[in-house]
Computed example of a mutant assay.
Amino acid sequence: MAVVELDELGSSQHGLTAEQGLRLARSGLVAATPSALVPGRWDVSARGRVGAARVGDVELWVRPKLDIARLLFLLGYAIDPKGWRDDEVDLATGDELVPAVANALCRLTERALRRGLLQGYLEVEETSYVLRGRLRENDQLRRHHGRVIPLELRHDDFTVDIAENRILLAAITRMLTAPRLDRHSRHRLTALRPRLADVTTLVRGARLPEWRPNRLNARYHTALRLAEIVWRATSPEHAPGSVTATGFLFDLSRIFEDFVTVALAESLPLHGTGAAHRQFPCTLDESSAVWMRPDLVWTVGNTPAAVVDAKYKREKPDGYPNADLYQLLAYCVALGLRRGHLVYAAGVGEGNGEPSRHLVRRAGVEIVCHALDLTAPPATLLRQVDELAKELTER
């Protein structure tokens, strides 16, 4: 099997057959083109996803520059800002992505199941010869045409086959299919499956069942949130091309956008009265033919007061990409705002620094570019977001 290893923002040449190169290109996970100078070599570049995947007989591994623990913090916070416990995940800094997440999933699942499987009531519909629960009269008449037995029943069953346990089992099953899973992690994950033997396995293509945090499932909370992260990372939608790929992949642009918008939506109400809207729908033209969706709009009295667009791009010496400025300018003009905010991910070790400001000629619109230091500890990173929220509410 051919192995292709890349850095998050890097590119390199690899010896691949024409079929292997085309499969990689069609997967959409990376950019792959034949080398113009060396026959049999392909130029492969990362496209914003990190993790491991298997495309045909090619194993792809894209290393994140961001620390794995910080990456999972961004993911977990976006899922549940009040419930994510970064300290409980406790990843080693030097671990590779897949083994690190697998070990964390094992540890948190073992902790959740230490006092046995969580049980709850599940509504069950079944055909039986013994009356139990309530009779489903319409089904009884339609299926049995007036016969007394068998009975079509509906009843509540106190069982371990509930949403929380199904989510854990689904994540464990998916994690076992991830490329680059080490032997120790595979053994621990496999050992957990018999403990969930009475839990229904989700069929291929099914969605995760919904669950709600409460005091009864409190010991499951962090494990369930990590399980949701695993499910998303191993879902087929992470292979957008025409070739099927299996793997464990994160879209960094989506992760950063979700984190920024969720964290700001949590912080903004602490500094002003208004409402935060993610993916706020608006139109550029009077005829409403061109629709736009800024990442976050802060409204006061149903009137837009601030707009934010998040971009996972590291700062460069030459400045920020002009396309982002044009996009935010369009948002400001359409929403009638005199100021807009771009939020970028600062480069590793570059820190946060002072925002750069661009006053657009003849438009009177100021574009403020902020950079969040994702390498900072979670508390420091959230303080950066809080300072940004404070600036957004100042009028």
Rank of each mutant, 00 (worst) to 15 (best):
M1G: 04
V3M: 04
L9E: 05
S11P: 06
Q13E: 12
G15E: 12
E19Q: 12
L24K: 01
L29G: 01
A32H: 02
T33Y: 05
A36F: 05
V38T: 09
G40N: 01
S45P: 02
V50R: 03
G56K: 07
E59T: 11
V62H: 00
V62D: 00
L66Y: 00
D67S: 13
D80R: 14
G83Q: 15
R85K: 02
V89L: 08
D95Y: 06
D95V: 13
N103M: 11
L105K: 01
A112E: 08
G116W: 02
L117K: 05
L118K: 03
L122W: 04
S128L: 09
Y129W: 11
V130G: 01
L131P: 10
R132V: 13
G133M: 04
L135R: 02
E137A: 14
R143D: 10
R147K: 02
R147W: 02
R154Y: 03
D161P: 08
A170R: 09
I172A: 00
L176Q: 14
R180A: 14
L181Q: 01
D182L: 09
H184C: 10
T200Q: 10
R204Y: 11
N214D: 01
R219D: 14
Y220K: 07
Y220R: 07
Y220S: 10
A227L: 02
I229F: 12
A233G: 08
S235E: 00
P236I: 05
S242C: 12
S253N: 13
R254F: 03
F259K: 07
V260I: 01
T261F: 06
S267I: 06
S267A: 15
A275Y: 08
H277E: 11
Q279K: 14
D285N: 04
D285F: 01
S287A: 15
R293V: 13
R293L: 15
V308F: 09
V308A: 15
Y312E: 07
Y312A: 10
R314V: 15
P317N: 00
G319Y: 04
P321Y: 13
L328D: 05
L328N: 12
L329M: 14
L337S: 09
G340R: 03
H341R: 03
Y344G: 07
A345R: 03
G351M: 09
G353S: 08
G353Q: 06
E354C: 08
S356M: 11
A363C: 11
G364N: 09
V368G: 03
T375H: 00
P377K: 05
A379I: 10
T380E: 12
E391F: 05
E391D: 08
L392S: 03
